[in-house]
Write a protein that binds this DNA or RNA. Structure first.
Length: 442
RNA sequence: GCCCUGGUAGUAUAGUCCGGUCUAGUAUAAGCGGCUGUCGCCCGCUCGACCCGGGUUCAAAUCCCGGCCAGGGCGCCA
């Protein structure tokens, strides 16, 4: 690192984002603030590519024409330095963007220690692991900014759609007591000497809330202590949950496909530049989405040579085959009751078959939901059958004595939606600071 | 947790099968010098690496064992 103290920002404020500097500004004095992405030094002529959250703009320094202060500052610059440039915009036919800035003053606002852990010019791409170890630097890449603008848009679309549909956003506890839903492994927490756990889903709370609010949704992180080693699982993930009173699985499936369509359309309509950066094309789902029963899926798999007995779970390789047969969104319905959680209602006509469903995208599960059990006796029975102690659920069961309405809901994985919308194949790439079996930092 | 594959400069790779001119090659980044229109600029020079521990051998980046880490797959994922 060259010996230089950072300049102060003083009264400098950004007058333009890099990508907004265009030929219309020809001859105007502007201030841009950002980072040195690249320096191309041709001797008596130097080019600095300045990058900010919007994109890049070229600073051109004809060394014989600019003043000495600018030259001195320029000679100190290295890539990734945070700088401010005040200068005159010049229209040009030679530069690719058709515009450049001739600086009258340069301020160094933040230095960078070289060598950096990543090649910021991206001439030598790094592996996902290396990028995650230097995540903040990695996130400066244009492609990453595109991913998080898409995430922001997904969340905004979900919230807008659900709010319009009359849902209100709620927050349920992340710290819970021993009494849980069973199943997935939980992370334990020392809660003032008491044993506590990190929530794996808001399931029971959101069901209870239908009693007072009827329509609720929640967006937030949940935790699963599974030893998973795949590119679609995380220890900490963001779940988008809804729960609604006085409806069944069919109703919330319709809601799910509509919000999905709305979200996809919103991204396609508003974020073409981002999708271009990611070199990813998406088409919105055409409604209604196909619905296959679990039994139909088994038949299809059988034709593919994959024999699964009725009642068994579908193994990953079988899902991959399904993805090839159905390269789009589709529902799988009428799962065996025993392969679904205790709170999923079974059919009146056949207790072996449930009203639970999964929303699939190719081979990957994006969301799952169903009609919920709303008879206390049935729920107690189901708890027992899954080896859980009803006494641990007494607070939840009590709500059934307060007039719990029939209800249904679903949960969608935000990161998996993002994978679908960005074309990324490793879930870690679409999480700012992913947590998995071995990664706890940064 | 299991299986497969891998771990070489800041980054990404060649070399490993078949141990010995490997004094470890290349690209890129970084440093220095040169160049007035670059836009993955160009040219020259320089810096910089065999994951850790043990073993076999005259000799280990290379073979063996253990560990750690990574990638993929499987399982788990109510």
């Amino acid at each position: 690192m060259k010996r230089v103290n950072p300049d102060s920002l003083g009264h400098w404020r950004k007058t333009w984002y890099a990508s907004d500097v265009d030929q219309e500004l020809d001859g105007k004095e502007i201030t841009v603030l950002g980072w040195v992405q690249e320096i191309r030094d041709l001797g008596a002529l130097k080019f600095i590519i300045l990058q900010d959250r919007s994109g890049t703009v070229q600073i051109t320094i004809p060394t014989k024409k600019v003043d000495r202060e600018v030259l001195e500052r320029t000679s100190l610059l290295q890539t990734q330095y945070c700088i401010g440039v005040k200068g005159i915009v010049k229209k040009t036919k030679i530069s690719k963007r058709g515009v450049e800035i001739i600086p009258s003053e340069i301020r160094i606002l933040g230095k960078a220690q070289h060598p950096l852990p990543l090649d910021m010019t991206r001439k030598t791409p790094a592996t996902v692991d290396t990028r995650l170890n230097a995540r903040i630097l990695d996130l400066c890449q244009e492609e990453n900014r595109a991913i998080w603008r898409i995430q922001h848009t997904i969340l905004a679309a979900f919230r807008r759609f659900l709010s319009k549909a009359g849902f209100i956003e709620v927050f349920t506890p992340r710290i819970i007591s021993t009494a849980t839903e069973g199943g997935a492994a939980l992370f334990s927490v020392d809660y003032f000497g008491q044993e506590a756990y990190l929530a794996q889903s808001p399931q029971l709370y959101k069901e209870e809330l239908t009693l007072c609010f009827e329509k609720v949704f929640e967006v937030g992180p949940f935790f699963r202590a599974e030893e998973s080693h795949t590119r679609r699982h995380l220890s900490e993930f963001i779940s988008i949950d809804i729960e609604q009173a006085f409806v069944t699985a069919d109703d919330v499936m319709e809601l799910l496909e509509k919000v999905l369509e709305y979200t996809c359309k919103t991204v396609i309509e508003n974020l073409q530049p981002e999708l271009m950066i990611l070199k990813h094309e998406i088409s919105p789902p055409s409604l209604p989405l196909k619905r296959f029963t679990y039994t139909q899926i088994l038949d299809e798999l059988k034709k593919e040579g994959l024999k699964i007995d009725w009642g068994e779970d579908i193994p990953t390789p079988a899902y991959r085959s399904l993805g090839k047969l159905h390269p789009y969104f589709y529902f799988i319905t009428e799962w065996p009751t025993k392969s679904k959680p205790f709170y999923i209602e079974s059919k009146d006509s056949n207790p072996e078959v449930s009203e639970g469903f999964d929303l699939m995208w190719k081979w990957m599960e994006l969301a799952s939901g169903g009609t919920r059990v709303h008879s206390k006796d049935v729920l107690v029975e189901r708890l027992k059958r899954q080896g859980l102690n009803p006494d641990s659920f007494r607070h939840h069961l009590q709500v059934f004595d307060y007039g719990l309405p029939p209800h249904a809901g679903w949960a969608a994985g935000l990161e998996r939606l993002l994978m679908m919308l960005t074309g990324k194949l490793n879930i870690r790439e679409v999480v700012l600071f992913p947590r998995d079996r071995t990664r706890l930092t940064p």
